[in-house]
Amino acid sequence: MPVIEVTSLHKRYGDLVAVDDVSFTVAEGEIFGVLGPNGAGKTTTVECVAGLRVPDGGGVSVLGLDPRRDAAQLRQRVGVQLQESQLPDQLRVAEALDLYASFYRDPADPAHLIDTLGLGDKRNTAYKKLSGGQKQRLSIALALVGNPRVAILDELTTGLDPQSRRDTWTLIEQVRDSGVTIVLVTHFMEEAERLCDRVAVIDRGRVVALDSPAGLVSTVAPEQRIRFRPSASMDDRLLTDLPEVTAVQRTGSQVVVTGTGDVLHAVTSVLARNQIVAADLRLEQSTLDDAFVELTGRRPAE
């Protein structure tokens, strides 16, 4: 049974349709990514899942609970990290965690959590004096302090420097390894590629693709590009005759082969048979970025 089940979710604000028709399921122990351009309806979708908003149509079930009807039970078991949610300036790290721990029936040990998140030497520091990365880690700690079975994390690493971002990713993987199901809203493709088992790409309030990151790339943007400099002159037809190859271009001494499937193997085999050595060979594969652009017609916002 899926941990989260969203069926034909619909939500409007006045005349603006924020979520038109969104359906997906999340399995236990999965890291599930929700991707999409700004204003696509990602945040509204997860807010409905978290029970913070009432959908205008469709159904949401989390751990078999209805987020509205069983709100009290849901809040015990679902940890939420919201976008742009701060704390009072003078509140100290340990105070915040102790306070939030007191809300739950079976909380995690705040002191242990502080250490795990690398805030050990900041426990008596006021929120105002924390760096962006530390604030973010505290925010994640607050989402986890209730020992949730599901964690919903919105814009996890926005505003973090690359090192903090990588540290946060490692942390999220540890959380997942402890058995927590994670829903991750992000617009960083690198983050989704690194962390997510599956992603839903949402555009204009609808799910336009739902697959593993690698699956999305190979179905949506399957093209690969091979660049090399041949050691001897060669006829382009050697390559264009291959079924895997879609195009061959030359720029100066460099040959650029575009193709799909097992194109690399096909090209190198044919070169070897003809005793041509491919110098400076590089393979460029599509990334989730390319798939995203293909799907939404927009570049992921940075």
Binding site: G79, S85, P88
Partner: peptide, 15 residues
């Protein structure tokens, strides 16, 4: 201030 900074919203996600 608590509303603007999302303190109230964060609290709404907890028990």
């Amino acid at each position: 201030t608590y509303r603007e900074r999302g303190v109230l919203r964060r609290l709404a996600t907890t028990p």
